[in-house]
């Protein structure tokens, strides 16, 4: 019998700690598949950020460094400058990348740092128990926006892909979603692009992935996927925002 579905070599097979219905696991799998398909397993170094994916190093069968909250692009820069011939990726949540790490990501892009960033946007702080993130939607209830995010005083969602696509140094910026099979396939193509760019020395590439947090959204996994489609995508339109300008 021919197997049709195998675990990517670049995943360890450790059972993840993610909640049922959380799409962090799908994102891990896509990244691992691309590392396998590009045959880069022994040459890849990952950077885990601070968020639910802080233990990503348990699941990827590649070298890893764990970074301070928000600093993954800086840590990745350090690694890449020591090993320009290796593939370096950072895996960051929206609190990590868009809030406390907003400076690091902008400047990594500005330097056209030749790294790949996988950016999981679930519109919330998952690990700390569901506080408001900069990506939280207007009106969305979280534990620190108990009356719903009020744009007066709590501001508006930050669209990091659009923002970074205005940075001259950024080479490739795309936003995809993990809420159904077709979109997962599209996300995989974008991730492949982002890693290939690095291998070809093209520079800073980031793929934003709209992701679920059923636990802190207080929804069933199925409802959470619907919520991504109905509520998140209108605020965070999908697509490639920047493709390979510059030399």
């Amino acid at each position: 019998m021919k197997p049709v579905y195998l675990r990517p070599k670049s995943l360890t097979g450790t059972v993840t700690h993610y909640c049922p219905g959380c799409t962090h696991g799908i994102a891990h799998r896509l990244v691992a598949e691309i590392i396998d398909e590009l045959d880069m397993q022994g040459k890849t170094i990952g950077v885990a950020s601070v968020g639910c994916s802080v233990f990503a190093y348990n699941y990827f069968d590649v070298d890893f460094q764990q970074a301070a909250h928000g600093r993954a692009p800086a840590v990745a820069t350090g690694i890449k400058r020591v090993h320009p011939d290796k593939v370096v990726f950072a895996y960051q949540g929206d609190g990590d990348l868009a809030s406390i790490g907003a400076a690091e990501i902008v400047h990594a892009a500005a330097r056209r740092e030749n790294i790949t960033v996988i950016f999981l946007n679930n519109a919330i702080y998952g690990m700390t128990g569901g506080q408001m993130a900069p990506t939280t939607l207007p009106g969305q209830k979280t534990t620190t926006s108990p009356f719903g995010r009020d744009t007066a005083g709590q501001g508006y969602p930050l669209r990091m892909s659009e923002l970074l696509s205005t940075v001259e140094g950024a080479y490739y910026i795309a936003r995809c979603s993990l809420h159904n099979a077709a979109n997962i396939a599209r996300a995989k193509r974008a991730i492949r692009q982002a890693f290939s760019n690095q291998i070809q020395g093209k520079g800073f590439s980031m793929v934003e992935l709209l992701s679920t947090c059923p636990t802190n959204w207080r929804m069933t996994p199925g409802k959470a996927l619907e919520w991504v489609e109905k509520e998140m995508i209108p605020v965070y339109p999908l697509g490639e925002f920047k493709i390979g300008e510059g030399e």
Binding site: G70, I100, T143, S145, P146, F147, G153
Partner: peptide, 30 residues
Amino acid sequence: YPITPQNEIPEYMSRRLQEVGGVFVQAESE
């Protein structure tokens, strides 16, 4: 800014300060 094990402080303040005419801001970092 959220961090375990003190999250109940900002969470409480996000509700309570509104009642007394105060201001709660979740900053982007510490």
